[in-house]
Amino acid sequence: MRKTRADEFLEFASARTGQLFRSACLLTSGDVHLAEDLTQETLGKMYALWGRVSRIGNPAAYAQTVLVRTFLSHQRRRSATERPLGELPDRTPDDGTDPALRIALLDALAALPAKDRAVVVLRYWEDRSVEETADALHTSSAAVRTRCTRALGKLRQRLGGTIGEFAAR
């Protein structure tokens, strides 16, 4: 018997929401409230697209792409309408890792322009190729390489040797 759209979607969402949320947390450099909102919006878009999406090869990867695009669209709108909050985003280091290192990495991500951050998350968290990243961001491979080089340079400047310690944990 054919499953309903809702059944299929819930199965997908149960398996993928955790990863979407974690990606969203990195994209928002630890703003979990915004990350929740972006995750919900992404799930909503996936549900609405489900008839087509469920037939493509990799709905999980597609959802990550939708998330990144949703994030960038949010950033673009926000820049024109919202004033600075003047407070740090909510961060919840609740897993036993060294909060200082974690915050250092999130801060370094936060200092990147949104699109550069998206490139870093897609390339090094999602392990996408330059071409796949370019597709997801509707941009050229050359632009992804440029952003990537610039973003990594900034991350390296800020994090220095710390990142090795963090990575080793």
């Binding site: 947390c25 992404t42 799930l43 549900y47 919840t92 090795g164 990575a167 944990r169």
Partner: peptide, 26 residues
Amino acid sequence: ELGSALRTAGEGFALDGRPELISAGL
């Protein structure tokens, strides 16, 4: 190292206690 650090940081954001995300998405 960056990939590894991102995974460590990312995995720290647990979804526990946020089951409403899925129903809200629906």
